[in-house]
Amino acid sequence: MSTFWKDNLPKLGQMSAAIALFLAVLAVIFFIAGRANGKKQRPIAIVVFLGPALILLLFGLLGPAIRTFLLSFKGSASKHWVGFNNYHWLFTDPSMRIVLRNTVFWILLTPIVTTALGLLLAILLDRMRRESIAKSLIFMPMAISFVGASIVWEFVYKFANPDQPQVGLMSSIAHHLGFEPPNWLLTQPLNTFLLMVVFIWSQTGFAMVILSAAIKAVPADIMEASALDGAHGWRLFRGITFPMVRSTFIVVLATMVVATLKLFDIVRASTGGNFGTSVLANEMYSETFIRYDAGRGAAMAIVLFILVIPVLVYNIINLRRERTIA
């Protein structure tokens, strides 16, 4: 026990010291900057409040993004320029074709399924008298890491040879229904859809909670007035509920699209991208850190970025409209 604490107590000390130092430095800066008065006060405040964030963003995201853009036009060792070679490879290589195909499947299917399922649950929740436990249970997977999730789902997708007992839930169900289960995660293209299920399982709760809040925000008198006019069920939903929550629906959808594109952990932790399940974000990691081809990895990162641009543009237009209204 004592050697354990001798190893680990200093870490906790390091953490406390770092936090204390961080807060102390801030306090000192606030104290000094707060004493400035007159015309200097505003510029000083802007520098102190915004400076740290901008410096961190510059070195952490903006600089690296530009560097990656440049790297994508260089060879594997980033020594000489190769023009569009990396991009050409990305769109013509047969193995990349599977990766791109999977990525397109993921983008087309998972965000819409997740968000629509979340909306459906949110509508149902709205009609329930008490909701808390069921809601929490559906939301719970969101707190589980994708590494944890892939271990959780291992017990669903686990497969054993027919002469051994099936300890995986799906295999066992298949067995009891009278057919021999396939080796789920090795069967293409089924395995990609099975991994999508893990994502949907994990993120539906998030969509549900956000959309549920949006539905609750729809003024009760509007609902009542239209119910009075004879609108209910599907008509009420199409005419009133959905238009009222449309902007939230699209925000959630956009969040899911971005999350899908960045998706790395599920594929990495369950199949490692093998058996035809790889997606762009995972392949990028392999290309950069395993096969050490920085150029190709960078090109994939840029393609990812380009794929998200429509979402970004839409979000910014939306944001500007909201801000002018407010």
Partner: peptide, 15 residues
């Protein structure tokens, strides 16, 4: 706001 969508994979190696 726009930086939100930069995939962090983009930033790892340079960082």
């Amino acid at each position: 706001f726009a930086l939100q969508i930069v995939p962090i994979q983009v930033a790892l190696v340079p960082l």
